[in-house]
């Protein structure tokens, strides 16, 4: 009798487990969630976003390197510890064919050589979009020219990217831009012309070029026989 009990109990346990597994798998398949509420993704007139970041870095210098000797000739450290805090706030307000966007950026860091901080308006500008083929921009804007991801030899009207963080926001320049697009059906599929006016006056774009000068820039994009062609 005892032997029978010993065999029966594991069998019952096995059977019970199978039943539990069967019903739990049913519950999982019945619980597949195919719901998708798009209410939260409806377009809004005002949107904002951003990020905060705290970063600690430890850097070991190559003390025999040429760049070390050039850059660290005053304070010779073989290592550097740095704590950096960054905050970025982006806003966008849309009304009809008008849109206003801004990007505010602040950064502070403390390392073995001292404290540094900065706070800037990276972008603040109006856009007028009366039709799909035309856009007019006015204000401080990052134009994002050039074809490179980390290094942009053709980014003539942008500040240089940090190759260590190519997606980091950059400060824009104050100017006006006009973007025109035309699509075609043949071998030439798209023509797009972008023109930008960048003045350099006192307190406006002073680091861009010659003072008291108005700079003009143009970019022509063609999609011809499935090939992207850019002229700057």
């Amino acid at each position: 009798m005892r032997v029978i009990c010993d065999r029966t109990f594991p069998r019952l346990l096995f059977l019970f487990s199978i039943i539990i597994l069967f019903f739990s798998s049913l519950a999982v398949s019945a619980g597949e969630d195919y719901s998708f509420d798009i209410e939260e993704f409806e377009p809004k007139n005002f949107e904002w976003g951003g990020y905060t970041e705290v970063r600690w870095e430890h850097i070991d210098f190559n003390t025999d390197g040429a760049f070390y000797k050039l850059n660290q000739y005053k304070d010779r450290h073989s290592t550097l510890d740095r704590l950096t805090g960054t905050m970025q706030l982006e806003t966008l307000y849309k009304k009809g064919i008008w849109a206003f966007n801004s990007v505010l950026y602040a950064k502070a860091s403390q390392d073995d050589m001292g404290w540094s901080d900065t706070a800037d308006v990276f972008e603040a500008g109006l856009s007028l979009k009366p039709a799909p083929f035309v856009t007019v921009d006015l204000g401080k804007k990052v134009f994002k020219w050039g074809t490179g991801y980390a290094w942009n030899p053709a980014g003539f009207i942008d500040r240089p990217k940090d190759p260590n963080d190519p997606e980091e926001a950059l400060e824009g320049y104050i100017g006006a831009g006009l973007d025109l697009i035309k699509s075609f059906g043949g071998a030439l599929q798209t023509v797009a012309l972008t023109t930008v006016v960048l003045p350099v006056w006192q307190d406006i774009n002073e680091d861009f070029g010659e003072a008291n000068n108005v700079n003009l820039a143009a970019k022509l994009y063609l999609l011809y026989r499935n090939t992207d062609i850019d002229f700057f």
């Binding site: 509420d37 039709a131 699509s183």
Partner: peptide, 21 residues
Amino acid sequence: IMIYARINKKKLADEVFTLNY
């Protein structure tokens, strides 16, 4: 898995389908 929530007919300009847009 792809879940479709809304599909509407819409008239669109050709220029919408360009890199600049």
